[in-house]
Nucleic acid binder design. Structure first.
Lengths: 341, 341
DNA sequence: TGTTAGCACTCTAATTGGTTGAGTGCTAAC
DNA sequence: GTTAGCACTCAACCAATTAGAGTGCTAACA
């Protein structure tokens, strides 16, 4: 048995109706809804076939049909574009160029959640191909040295170092020059043990300062270790009965609170090189444990060369995919443009 | 009518029983529970009086009684200490001296939530009495200057400034000296417009750099504007039916997600000078909108001189106050000691 | 051969009414 | 002042019923 054109049309009608109403769809509804002019009995026969093909399911014997994951997948891949969406008024998306990145991203998440009425996440950009740009040691207190490390992409890392006894300005200058001449322009891979040893030797009694700085450099470069993720709209889970029984809600909320659990999503997204921009995970396809009953739609944005982050929406499988994709694209474009100018 | 000793005893019995069971308490239960040797009928009379006095309420006509906010308040103020709590095995609280403050505090919140089975929050310390310690301008790129500002308590603020054309090392040095000689050691209040104008004049064509630095200084000092708050255990709200209907849960979760809404709590807590250490808010007493059905217990910790933060537990009014207070005290002590050594 | 009308059947959701049990308030007696 | 006793209230539970939506199947139709 094949998915011929008529079955395809019927399936499409079922899914669209279900997305609108959230209720299982019966044969009579489809018989009226489509312009196929078929009786409900015929539709019933076709529905039985579609069920056999795995595109739809029956929650119980005497209920209508709902789409299966396979059905949703077909919808997202093939049917979605075809529907000419009425241009709908959308709350203006506006991102002020805030100087604080964290505020900006938090704001972005909030906006996504408000506009879509689903839960939203935004990951802070990951910095790749990081090279050391600049190191600066300064005396702050008698026995405290501040090391400032700037890497490509203008990520800044501060590290306070305590020294046993005061350093003269001259010594400090020497150390500054030592560190900068040896390390500037290098990537993590290029900094090797031999180099470090050589520097330590040159630093003499101040080798522990060199060690501290190297340590801070390492941390600044592998900043992705503690990937920041901002979320918003957790309460929207409650809008969809299929997600809001205690057990499920509890799991979803925990996942959303312990944001590290969402990092899979970010990894997955960034890893995908030939990423067209939008990725859809339906039900079991999700890389995040505890969200098997949801659909997740993500997009990757790029703030600056190599600074990529992920934005995403989590909602019920019967989410309004068009709206979600539209919102994500809009935000992605705004973020892409933000620092490009 | 007065709260005589017998009424007091009965009230105590009612509240304790309710805390244990979470069910409205009937007269017969109390008649058996206490060693007053009174019949249920007598208890009923006393209960009617206690209700009139406002210490207990009846959810509906033919139900037992539950404590009112006023009842809980009396319990927390007067009755709590009297109960000798069996020393209960508690999961060991252990805070590694993590070098990253945010990890440490997040971890602390998680621990509180796990131990108590309520929702927990931890605020990052607020830095008070901030004076400027040190300013450093460095060239990073041809047209980019990095300003590093260190204030008392070693809070560090970075600000990237873009300049129209390159600056000579000499000019940079001059600006550094200008800024440091004028500003070091001053508090926010001491930096006035006249001073800024004078510096701008001396800076000549580089007055915009001075302006940028002043701006960053202002931000560094009023860092409390974006007070960091870490939360954990949101899902614990679901453990208590009185908090987990959709409406209430939705509100609680939103408050917990938009952490700024919890800042009232922190303000309130830090403002209270003669704070004995633990503060209890019952029901309507809470400073946080949307938590009127909860009780909140908070404590203040002090990492270093003037670096105060708040830790807190949010749960149902019928929470195990002793356990909560005990946990907060334990954590508070650990945090207090952490950087003191 | 594909389509349709019709019918028996299934299952959920909502409604109803009855029962149970916990708990109360009140009164009269101790 | 205390208590026994009784009538009353109310939520919670259960079973039975009903209504309605929807199905699958069969037989007739074009």
């Amino acid at each position: 048995m094949q998915l011929d054109e008529r079955k395809y049309t019927i399936l499409q009608a079922i899914i669209r109706t279900y997305l609108e109403t959230g209720e299982p769809v019966g044969s009579r509804t489809i018989s009226k809804y489509t312009d196929l002019n078929l009786s409900s009995a015929t539709i019933r026969n076709e529905m039985a076939d579609l069920e056999e093909l795995g595109y739809i399911l029956q929650p119980h014997t005497s209920a209508g049909r709902i789409p299966s994951d396979k059905g949703y997948r077909l919808y997202v891949d093939k049917m979605m574009e075809e529907k000419e969406r009425e241009v709908e008024e959308m709350k203006e998306i506006l991102l002020e160029k805030e100087d604080k990145m964290d505020h900006l991203l938090k704001q972005a998440a909030r906006m996504l959640a408000t506009n879509t009425e689903y839960a939203a996440m935004v990951s802070a950009p990951q910095y790749h191909r990081n090279k050391l740009k600049f190191i600066q040691l300064s005396r702050v207190d008698f026995n405290q040295i501040l090391a400032v490390i700037v890497v490509e992409g203008n990520v800044i890392k501060n590290r306070m170092l305590t020294v046993a006894e005061g350093l003269s300005d001259e010594t400090l200058l020497k150390l500054n020059i030592l560190l900068n001449t040896h390390l500037n322009g290098l990537s993590m891979e290029q900094i090797n043990l031999g180099m470090i040893a050589a520097m330590k030797q040159q630093a003499g009694i101040h080798s522990d300062i060199v060690a501290g700085v190297i340590d801070a450099v390492a941390e600044a470069i592998k900043a992705d270790e503690d990937l920041e993720i901002y979320t918003s709209g957790t309460k929207n889970f409650f809008k969809y009965p299929e997600l809001s029984d205690h057990e499920r809600a509890s799991e979803l909320i925990t996942t959303f609170e312990e944001k590290q659990l969402l990092s899979e999503l970010v990894q997955d997204n960034l890893a995908d090189e030939n990423n067209t921009g939008i990725q859809v995970y339906i039900g079991n396809e999700t890389p995040v444990q505890g969200m098997r009953d949801c659909s997740i739609v993500t997009a990757t944005y790029e703030l600056d060369e190599g600074m990529k982050g992920t934005i995403g929406i989590i909602g019920p499988k019967r989410m309004d995919y068009e709206k979600v994709v539209k919102n994500l694209k809009l935000l992605k474009n705004q973020l892409d443009d933000l620092y490009r100018k």
